[in-house]
Design a protein around this nucleic acid. Structure first.
Length: 304
DNA sequence: GACGTCGTCTCTAATTTGAT
DNA sequence: ATCAAATTAGAGACGACGTC
């Protein structure tokens, strides 16, 4: 009965490989830089694991001859050792040109829309076989996903990230108001009165809400607006603005992607700015592949 | 988290065994 | 007698576990 592979360690595989090369315990031990006795002990353990003598004394009385079982193991052993060598090297080296790695970035479609157009050409130029998956973050799950390695990076605000994550500023963001080109109310900046009279589109990332930070800012001024459409996805906003008379107040960098269809102007009230940050877990901080991906993202932000 | 104890494993050096 | 492999004894390293 063969023993479970839990008894097997890499040193035993290296011993078997050395014995196959030298077919002599003393010479193989010298190759491995251990004593003949130590290699003899390893051979004993290999024999127990494989339930086979593996090597028998040569008829000449000098050296050991591999059994047919050992010779059958040889090609797979060499493949295994080659794969182990590559596995160890891959932990220290990341080659974008040959990597087929898939990176997962959790980001709302606002920062994804800002980053992806600049980021993806940078990545494909250096790493043609690398794949990137942008996923919508579940704020209750994303910290655990980062810790478990299910997500590589999270792009969001500090309030959405756990304090133990490593975070770096990507950009500071301010708000602009957008309306479709040809809007019946005319062009140019809005007065606060007109702003409050028009229909508004609101993006509710949690879904279904009709009030947000802008409504709170208006309330501080003793004013209110009318939100007639609430959507959960940023991607819908330009489409709806383009086909209705709604106006919408959204992050500047996002809206600037759609200036061919939308007219943008400064909102008629003071709104807080916010910081968009990149977050990752400390377990991947030194990972060469992660470092490369983070550098790509910071480069992409610079070009925005 | 630091520390001590215990059991297991692996090593070396010395010795034994077996083939020629 | 010589050479090579196997075995044995003892030492050290290491992990698991319990205690503080």
């Amino acid at each position: 009965m063969t023993r479970p592979i839990g008894d097997l360690d890499i040193n035993l595989l290296l011993a078997l490989d050395a014995l196959l090369q030298d077919q002599n315990v003393t010479h193989a031990a010298a190759r491995l830089n251990i004593t003949q006795s130590a290699l003899s002990g390893r051979l004993t353990r290999l024999r127990r694991i494989f339930n086979d003598p593996l090597f028998v004394p040569s008829s000449s009385g000098r050296g050991m001859t591999p059994t047919s079982h050992t010779l059958a193991l040889k090609p797979e052993l060499q493949r295994l050792l080659q794969q182990l060598t590559q596995f160890v090297q891959s932990a220290h080296v990341f080659d974008p040109a040959t990597s087929e790695r898939t990176f997962r970035i959790a980001a709302m479609d606002n920062p994804a829309a800002i980053l992806a157009p600049a980021l993806l050409p940078l990545i494909s130029a250096q790493a043609p076989a690398v794949r990137v998956a942008f996923t919508l973050p579940d704020k209750t799950q994303v910290n655990g996903q980062l810790e478990r390695g299910e997500v590589d990076l999270f792009i969001g605000t500090a309030q959405d990230a756990a304090p133990n994550l490593i975070g770096r500023l990507l950009f500071n963001e301010e708000f602009l108001t957008a309306q479709r080109i040809g809007h019946p109310r005319g062009t140019g900046p809005l007065s606060l009165d007109t702003f409050c009279e028009l229909d508004h589109l609101l993006i509710s990332t949690s879904g279904g809400m009709f009030n947000g930070m802008i409504d709170e800012a208006l309330a501080d001024l003793g004013r209110q607006r009318r939100v007639t459409v609430s959507v959960q996805s940023y991607a819908l906003a330009p489409l709806i603005l383009n086909s209705t008379d709604c106006i919408c107040t959204l992050p500047k960098r996002f809206l600037q992607r759609f200036t061919s269809h939308l007219e943008l102007f400064t909102p008629p009230l003071t709104l807080d700015t916010f910081s968009m940050k990149l977050f990752w877990h400390s377990t991947v901080n030194a990972d060469p592949a992660h470092r490369w991906l983070r550098s790509m993202i910071f480069d992409a932000v610079q070009t925005n």
